[in-house]
Amino acid sequence: MNIIALFVSPLIALIAGMFFLGLSRKISARIQWRYGPPIYQPVIDVIRSFSQKSITHGKFFDFGIILSLSSSFVLILFLPIGKLCALTSGGLIAFLYLMLMGPFGIALSGAAAANPNSSIGISRKFLLALAYEVPLLLVLLTVMTHYHTISLVEIVNIQANSGWAFGSWALILPGIAYLLILPAILGMRPFEVVGAAQEISSGPIAEFGGKHLAFYTLQHALHVFVGIALFVDIFLGGWTFFGLLNPLAGTVWAVIFGIIIFLLKMTLVLFIGLFVNAVYPRFRIEQAMQYLWKWPTLISFVGLIIVVLTK
């Protein structure tokens, strides 16, 4: 099982991530009264980027982006996609750290480009990360404390037995907090401060072209996938769907349908993000930080206190 997951789950994540990128462009277009690009447009973009002759600002410029993409793929291995989960070592803590490495790689690469637009973008990226990390850590700690485990797989498995976390009264507040910070994790408006094209010329990727851009796009796709998948895994019970898969338990079909259910749930969550994305302008970075440190943090803090007190 693990061996299969090792090969299959990055593939699923990549395809689904690109699909989500395409879908988000299509849906945004429809909200804006447009027809929108074909849903496979991001794939064409990636192929185009690969076919272009990029520039490099030195070895480190290349190293950062490779590090970023490969660690994003490593991250996928730690994520239960449906019933697939290749690696479990380190649990959610290692997951959190690995989640950091993708942006960190891009930050290294962007800074090696010696472009202040990139540097400002990275500074915003880290500040935004710090801002949403506060409620996110509280949320994850609440979940880990509640289920008394640091393993993601176990969290999903417990939910399979005892119902979705989002449905249980103790974890509803963290769930809401996660939904509130989801646009920030995905880098969507109103938190699209990092690659603010009209302000700092698309920020960290200002100097990326050709294969560097292609790598970045893939990394971004994976990032979107991870951001949503984490929510689905932690709060919406991963592959579970009210015992629908119980009759199939143990067969290959359970795995396949599990993945399908998982992806459907992710699409649903993505839609919520897209509708928020469509009707809000960009925050200024300090406004974003103030917002994230106000409501989501408060809600998740209350959630954590409730969980600690009822423990």
Binding site: R25, A29, Q32, W33, R34, Y35, G36, P37, P38, Q41, I44, D45, R48, S49, Q52, S54, I55, A197, S201, S202, I205, A206, E207, F208, G209, L213
Partner: peptide
């Protein structure tokens, strides 16, 4: 590039820096 003609359906979108453009 906006609603009326919507160049994005042909994959045409403006980008910020020349590095990403063709």
């Amino acid at each position: 590039i906006t609603t009326r003609w919507d160049a994005e359906r042909f994959g045409i979108i403006p980008v910020a820096t020349p590095r990403q453009a063709n």
